[in-house]
Structure formats: C-alpha cells, structure tokens
Design a binder for these strands. Structure first.
Length: 163
DNA sequence: CCCTGATTCGC
DNA sequence: GCGAATCAGG
C-alpha cells in the first residue's frame, strides 16, 4: 500500500466514521491488517477492542485443581433405579453383571414408587442385605436429614481467585 | 465457523 | 514503515 496523504486522509475519515477495520480495508482495497496496522502507527484512537491483552500476566496457567469436595449434588450415586450399580469409592467389588432390577431381591426393601421414604442405599447392591434407609425424608428431599447431610455438599466458597 | 481489533515480527 | 500472521474475545 502506498500511503499517500490522500490515502491516509481517507483512512482517518473512514476510521472516524466508525467503520470496522475490515470494512475500511474493503473500501480501500486493502487488508484489514493493513488498516489496523496503519491506524495503530498513526495513533488513531483505538476503538473498543473485543480482547484484552493487558490482563493478569498468568505465568501459572492454573491447571484447574481438582477439588476434593463434590459440588452441590448427591455425593453418593444413586437413588433407586440407577442403571449401573455404581460402587462406593472405598471398596470396588467386581461389578455385578446382573440387571439392576435383579439387584433388589426383596420387594419390601425397595420403597414403593411414590412412597416418601429416604432412598439412601444401605449395603451392597445385589446382595440380600441391600436395602434403602427408609426413614422419613426431609421435605422436598429424597433423603432423611441424616443422609441428606451426606448427599449434599456445599461447594467450597472459593473466593481466593477473585483477588 | 464467522466476526472483531491488537500485537508481533520478518521484511 | 509495512502488513501477514497470529492472537484472543464475541
């Protein structure tokens, strides 16, 4: 690009009219890079840039530290009809291949649909000892107070990055 | 993917 | 000085 005085005037005019760099480039038959480059060199008033490069120099990219605490969700798998008998983290026994419905041998152990009892699982799914808590659930929760305390964990108030 | 503007850097 | 390449956010 031959930046004649006229060309520079036109650039300034179009720039002042608020056209995008690409648009100015189109009108002048040059690339937007030429436009923004020249505008930068002319110290034309920068217009709102979509990006910020001055932000915090983050040499440490913070690799999303795995937080031990579970978010506000059930810490333990599975109310009743979950598909996989997801095993407690502590002792993973060989996954039972049997379909889930087979995992509840005693119908009495399973809360009836619509019955409002704590559905916290007790024992190993698939075993005859397995049952649900069955206690009175908290209002609006599927678990009794005791198990709701285990099931719902408040996310740690992490404000340390707010700086 | 498209758009945006800013910065970098070899020419 | 120039501007393509690249970056980075929307």
């Amino acid at each position: 690009m031959d930046w004649t005085a006229e060309a520079i005037e036109r650039l300034k005019a179009l720039w002042a009219e608020g056209h995008s760099t690409a648009e100015i480039g189109r009108r002048m038959g040059i690339s937007k890079n030429a436009v923004v480059g020249k505008a930068h060199r002319l110290n034309l008033p920068a217009r709102p840039s979509p990006i910020r490069r001055d932000a915090q120099p983050r040499p440490a990219p913070v690799p999303r530290a795995p937080r031990p605490v579970a978010p506000a969700r059930a810490a333990v798998p599975p109310p009743m009809l979950r598909a996989a008998p997801a095993v407690a983290p502590a002792a993973p026994p060989p996954a039972p291949a049997a379909p889930v419905l087979r995992a509840f041998p005693a119908p009495a152990a399973r809360p009836r649909l619509g019955s409002r009892t704590c559905c916290w699982p007790i024992g190993e799914p698939g075993t005859s000892a397995f049952r649900f808590c069955g206690a009175e659930p908290m209002a609006g929760k599927p678990y009794c107070a005791e198990h709701a305390a285990l099931a719902y964990v408040k996310p740690r108030d992490r404000r340390e990055d707010a700086a």
